[in-house]
Amino acid sequence: MKRHLIFIMFSVFFLPSTTVSACSIVYYIDKISGKIYVANNEDYWLDTDAYIQIEPQSKNKLARLWYGWDDFAQGGVNSAGLFFDGAVTPKLNDSKKYKKIKGNLGDHILAHCKTVNDALALLQKEKIALGNAHMVLGDATGNAVVVEWINGERKLIHIKDGYLIATNFLLSDPEKGNYPCYRYKSIEQRIQKLKSQDTTADMRSFGNVVGGAVQLPQQDSNGKSGGTLYTSFINITDMEFGLIYKLDNNKITRFNLKEEFEKGKRRVIPLK
């Protein structure tokens, strides 16, 4: 995967500081090749010490790559092709049926699950729910779902027409807040344009799907800067990974995931 293949034409939007923890996630199956792509814009404080962590396969755990900070995976993929990411939503889960998250949930899922169904079963078995976020799960078989927890009830929004998008409103109950969402609309419009073309999608054409949903750096009332901290791209079918840091196409990290996982080494790569 060459650097220019994931160059993105970023569009300009100015948003209030309250959206600094926004996130945009998309899972897409190319109608011609059948290849599966995922992408994520992570919008957060720009002074965050984010990094990529690679964990090797062990006796009971799958090899995996995740990105995040403070020993907590914000998103990632494993050697079986299972992807996850999450996005903040209005807080609605106050049920005592579920446990509060302890430890690194994303790493736990990627270490032990090969498919979306495996991950859903793990979440249910361990009584895990997100109180103020929903989770996107997608795998190498073409199965993808957004998981939401509303007042103690789990809601599943399944992939439809070859794609699945999540931003910061509840897909199962949009009127609870953060809706309408220009980022969701932008991604959906670009997906439809991509689907209408008679050419096979690649990392570059797919990457531009999230280009209109980024947030340029801006300061809040206290002078703290927020915006798109990084944008990640994964070709699940070919196990290719790319990440652009702070909207700078000169700051690209890329891996052949299969080769990286075969090295059998734990790595932590600071983003800078």
Score class of each variant (00 low, 15 high):
Cys113Thr: 03
Lys251Pro: 10
Ser205Cys: 10
Lys224Glu: 14
Ala201Thr: 13
Glu240Gly: 10
Lys193Ala: 12
Lys185Leu: 15
Lys251Tyr: 07
Asp248Ser: 13
Pro270Met: 10
Pro56Gly: 12
Glu153Ala: 04
Gly131Thr: 12
Leu15Gly: 03
Phe13Gln: 09
Gly75Tyr: 03
Ile32Cys: 05
Glu148Asn: 09
Phe241Asn: 07
Thr237Val: 07
Thr89Ala: 08
Phe13Tyr: 11
Arg154Lys: 14
Gly142Arg: 06
Leu105Thr: 03
Asn249Gln: 09
Gly264Pro: 05
Lys185Glu: 15
Asp85Phe: 15
Ile101Pro: 01
Ile6Ala: 03
Leu122Asn: 00
Ala119Ile: 00
Ala129Met: 01
Tyr184Met: 06
Phe206Cys: 12
Val12Phe: 13
Asn60Ala: 08
Gly152Tyr: 09
Trp66Met: 07
Ile165Gln: 07
His112Gln: 08
Gly106Tyr: 11
Ser186Met: 00
Gly212Gln: 09
Ser33Met: 10
Ala201Asn: 05
Tyr37Glu: 02
Phe233Lys: 01
Pro174His: 04
Thr253Leu: 11
Lys265Leu: 11
Leu257His: 11
Lys100Phe: 04
Lys193Trp: 09
Phe206Asn: 10
Leu156Ile: 15
Val38Glu: 03
Ser186Asn: 13
Thr231Cys: 03
His108Gln: 04
Pro56Ala: 14
Asn40Ala: 05
Met1Val: 14
Gln189His: 10
Phe7Val: 13
Val214Thr: 03
Gln124Asn: 09
Lys100Ser: 06
His158Cys: 05
Val88Arg: 11
Pro56Thr: 13
Lys251Arg: 15
Tyr44Ala: 04
Asn250Met: 08
Thr231Phe: 02
Gly103Tyr: 10
Ser205Ile: 13
Glu262Asp: 15
Gly242Trp: 07
Ser17Asn: 02
Val26Trp: 04
Arg183Asn: 07
Phe83Asp: 02
Pro56Asp: 12
Ala201Ser: 14
Leu194Met: 14
Phe255Trp: 05
Ala22Leu: 05
Ser95His: 10
Ser221Gly: 08
Ala119Gln: 02
Phe169Pro: 03
Lys195Arg: 09
Phe84Val: 02
Tyr245Thr: 06
Gly138Met: 10
Phe206Thr: 08
Ser225His: 08
Asp198Pro: 06
Gln219Phe: 14
Cys181Leu: 10
Gly75Leu: 09
Lys114Asn: 12
Arg267Glu: 12
Glu262Ser: 15
Glu126Leu: 00
Lys258Glu: 07
Asn143Arg: 03
Cys23Met: 07
Leu171Val: 01
Ala22Gly: 12
Val146Arg: 04
Asp47Tyr: 15
Asn208Met: 00
Glu259Met: 09
